[in-house]
Write a protein that binds this DNA or RNA. Structure first.
Lengths: 91, 91
DNA sequence: TTTAAACATTCAAATGTTTCGATATATTAG
DNA sequence: CTAATATATCGAAACATTTGAATGTTTAAA
């Protein structure tokens, strides 16, 4: 994983709302629906759309269309690559 | 590790110069001198000072004064806590 | 086919970040 | 003590991010 991607992933995680979204994957290991995120974050819809875009663009979340709804799953391989990069710093 | 700290660490890592600084700890497992960072980053001295402050404030680097020089060591326990948080997302 | 629901995009305001010149502080050398 | 070196702080310019109102798009229901 190159520096540019490390930067993008880190930036994606560096926001309270986006951390809150990611934390949902601890409790529920299934997918997360856009509407559920709207319920749990006290933000306007365009803001939530923006935050989800950051996470998807960083490749941390994979979007799946389901009719007119959208659900997200955690991209574990990418998360693991990011973790591997961090571990590699320790020598 | 609480969300606020996750946010701060992520933000500290979300910059090309700061990633470059952190990557130095892969090659050399010893400490890193401020002057060495100045040599490797094509930035003015106040900018480097700023970036190092971000990393120290996020608790990723521990500063040690040595005369009029300053050296930094990687804060492995904090890095490991951050990694543990990320791992916990995978359920 | 009209209507409504779910999500995305655009735009602008507010706020935060990065960068560097100038300057300040601390430490060491002479 | 004075001069030089290493690092920090301040202030301002440039740039990026966050937020929501308004609006657009897509899909499903009636």
């Amino acid at each position: 994983m190159d520096s540019k991607k490390i930067e993008k992933i880190s930036r994606a995680i560096s926001d309270p709302s986006r951390i809150q979204i990611l934390q949902q994957f601890r409790k529920r290991r299934e997918c997360l629906y856009c509407a559920e995120i709207h319920d749990m974050l006290d933000l306007a819809q365009p803001s939530i759309s923006h935050h989800l875009k950051q996470l998807v663009d960083a490749d941390l979340l994979l979007p799946e269309k389901e009719g007119r709804n959208l659900k997200y799953v955690l991209n574990k391989p990418v998360l693991n690559e990011y973790i591997a990069f961090l571990s590699s710093l320790e020598g």
